[in-house]
């Protein structure tokens, strides 16, 4: 890694799900939407809430808390959907609330400590210390990949 890229700033959108703080790189976030009812998919795992109409395309909505084994997100009008893009796929992540935009330099991102949950280890690329503790950087690809496989 060159000097420049170490110092370069990266922006993250942080949000809470299952009372924990998560974040994804801002370049992956398309928009943040109010929760609206979804259409359930047959035999979908808990974390796949269903599909939603986003201006004519069908996008799946994942419950991020359920995805990380933190239990189903309770219904709440304050819940929001973070619409994100990954590898040509557009998906929605249901979270409790969006917290802030975080601007950090790359060297502030720490490696994920050795945690037991394999799923969490694979889906979290690193952690960033913040005032209230830390936020977990999500590997969107891993989240989608594993969810998709669950359904298959």
């Amino acid at each position: 890694m060159s000097e420049d890229s170490v110092k370069s700033e990266v922006e993250f959108v942080t949000f809470s799900a299952g009372d924990q703080s998560f974040s994804i790189e801002i370049t992956q976030v398309r928009e943040i939407r109010r929760w609206s009812p979804v259409t359930a998919l047959p035999h979908a795992p808990n974390e796949v809430l269903g599909v939603m109409n986003l201006r004519g395309s069908v996008i799946p909505i994942y419950d991020l808390a359920a995805r990380f084994g933190l239990g189903q997100t309770p219904e709440n009008p304050r819940n929001v959907i973070v619409v994100a893009m990954h590898g040509g796929q557009t998906v929605g992540l249901l979270v409790e609330a969006v917290s802030e935009i975080l601007s950090v330099s790359r060297d502030q991102i720490q490696e994920t400590p050795d945690i037991r949950s394999e799923m969490a280890r694979q889906s979290i690329t690193g952690v960033i210390p913040i005032e209230t503790g830390m936020t977990r950087v999500i590997d969107l690809g891993a989240v989608l990949h594993q969810a998709g496989r669950t359904l298959q």
Binding site: L41, P42, H43, A44, V51, G56, S57, V58, I59, P60, G88, Q89, T90, V91, G148, L151, Q152
Partner: peptide
């Protein structure tokens, strides 16, 4: 509308 483009096939 395709389900596959953003999700995958659903049996």
């Amino acid at each position: 509308k395709s389900l596959e483009s953003n999700f995958g096939s659903v049996p």
